[in-house]
Amino acid sequence: MGRVVTLVLVDPAGTVLGALPPYEVDLPWWQEVADVVAGARAHHGVDVTVLRLLFTDQPAPPGGKVTYLAEVAGHPGPVRPAAAALVPHPRRAPYAEIGGPAASLAWAEAALAARGRRLTAAAQQRTWNLSAIWRLETDTTPVWLKQVPAFFAHEAAVLRWLGEHCPGTAPVPLAADGGRVLLDDLPGTDRYGAPAAERLLMLSSLHTVQLVAAGRVDELLALGVPDQRPPHLAERLRAVVARDAAPPHADRLAALLHGLDDRLAELSACGLPDTLVHGDFHPGNVRGAADRHAVIDWGDSVLGHPAIDLLRMCERLADPEPLRRAWARSWRTAVPGCDPERAVALIEPLVALRNAAAYAGFLDAIEPSEWPYHADDVPYWLAQAAA
């Protein structure tokens, strides 16, 4: 299952030129645009930069017929008549604006030059409401340009903090500016599908980070890391239920929230410290090889309870118990007298609701044309929480 792509073309002055005839690409995921760019070149002889989603024929990804706005510098040749309302939107990411990607590439080129390196080629990999990613070739080794929206802008500061306090656990920025960050290439692959033994190493690496971070929470708050410790977490959970819960799940979700403050107080009494939480700690957000790796994509990071990351890493494992036991042993060793198993039991029913709140936050922060990316996420996670 792939996508059928239509590109509405706009020039750097903001003039809509028309649309290219549709073509197919293999990957169904709407945010992946490397094959969209390659397809425009292969099918139509046009070099484009994809800016943002315009509309689709289905309410949520993946697959289907997808129309993007794409910027083109030269004359595209024959195009079909097309219209696009290029109305500014206050929640549009800078890299989704006409000229936005070019400005970011110019920044990256200058940042490389300041370090004695020369940009030789740039290839767009991904763009959507959560990030834009480019692979940049240089006269030495490849680098990656990542740009995130304002609500993830603390990622670069977190990466710098990790480089200072926990070296080797995450990529270190070569340069950063607002939501832009330039990163050296990391050898290896994204570790999707990693077996349990490899996930144990990932948890061990993150445990080291979280022990250090637990003693430096004020520093991380000052860097802009969002606060999701119990009072703030409770507020978010109640808000998403009040706004988005509907039959048949509303009554069960109300029951889940009953006694929430007592549950969170008992969670704190288990003795595990609040710390830096990655927020999306699955194997695909770890890059490297089976025996060495770095944790990537810290945009979802918050201050909160470390069991959140354990439960994410345990997803889709036939038997997660060995990971849970090893994680609990690590925390009992680090914090004598704590009760990790009880902490997991207390927070596990809340994690799906926390996920619903996270996606609701995305919807609040992005422009409506990008909502289809997350259209199913809030109701899905509310249903999981109710179950």
Rank of each mutant, 00 (worst) to 15 (best):
A176F: 02
L311M: 05
H278D: 02
G178P: 15
A356T: 00
A114T: 11
P247W: 01
R180K: 13
W144M: 12
Y23M: 06
M1G: 04
P187W: 13
E137V: 03
P167F: 11
C314D: 04
A196D: 02
L310Y: 00
A170V: 12
G361C: 03
A356F: 02
P247E: 12
L267S: 04
T208H: 11
L253G: 00
G116N: 09
R236Q: 15
D339N: 15
A13C: 07
A70D: 09
T120N: 05
L186E: 14
A358I: 12
R229H: 01
V87T: 14
R91P: 04
H165R: 15
A102I: 13
A245C: 01
A123M: 10
P248T: 02
Q210P: 03
R91F: 11
W29H: 11
L183K: 11
P88A: 06
D47V: 13
A289N: 08
R180T: 14
L183W: 14
Q125A: 07
V5W: 00
V344T: 09
G100Q: 01
A214H: 03
A170P: 14
C166A: 11
P22I: 02
V16L: 14
C314G: 14
H207T: 07
A242T: 14
A96P: 06
P61C: 01
H44F: 07
R292A: 11
A352K: 05
P306K: 00
D262G: 08
H165D: 07
R287T: 03
W381I: 09
A84G: 15
P62Q: 04
V50I: 05
T208C: 06
P368R: 00
A13L: 08
A157Q: 09
M1A: 02
T275Y: 04
L54F: 04
G100P: 04
T140H: 09
V25R: 02
H89E: 07
P76C: 08
V241I: 10
A250F: 03
A13R: 13
A356M: 03
Y23L: 15
A328Q: 11
S131W: 06
N355E: 13
V4K: 02
L159I: 07
Y359Q: 05
E137W: 04
V240D: 05
D190C: 15
L86V: 11
D339K: 15
E198P: 03
P90Q: 00
R180V: 13
P21W: 15
G99E: 04
L54M: 08
A194V: 14
A246K: 12
T120S: 10
V172Y: 10
L350T: 00
I133H: 06
A386H: 06
A386I: 09
V143G: 03
F281A: 09
P76V: 10
W134L: 06
A196H: 05
A365W: 01
L17G: 08
M202D: 05
A242F: 13
R115M: 11
A214I: 01
H43N: 14
H165F: 10
S104Y: 10
A246I: 06
A103H: 04
A93L: 01
T333F: 13
A196W: 02
V240I: 03
G179N: 15
P149K: 03
C338Y: 14
D11L: 12
G178D: 14
T208W: 08
S205N: 02
A357N: 01
V72W: 07
D291T: 09
D35P: 14
S369A: 12
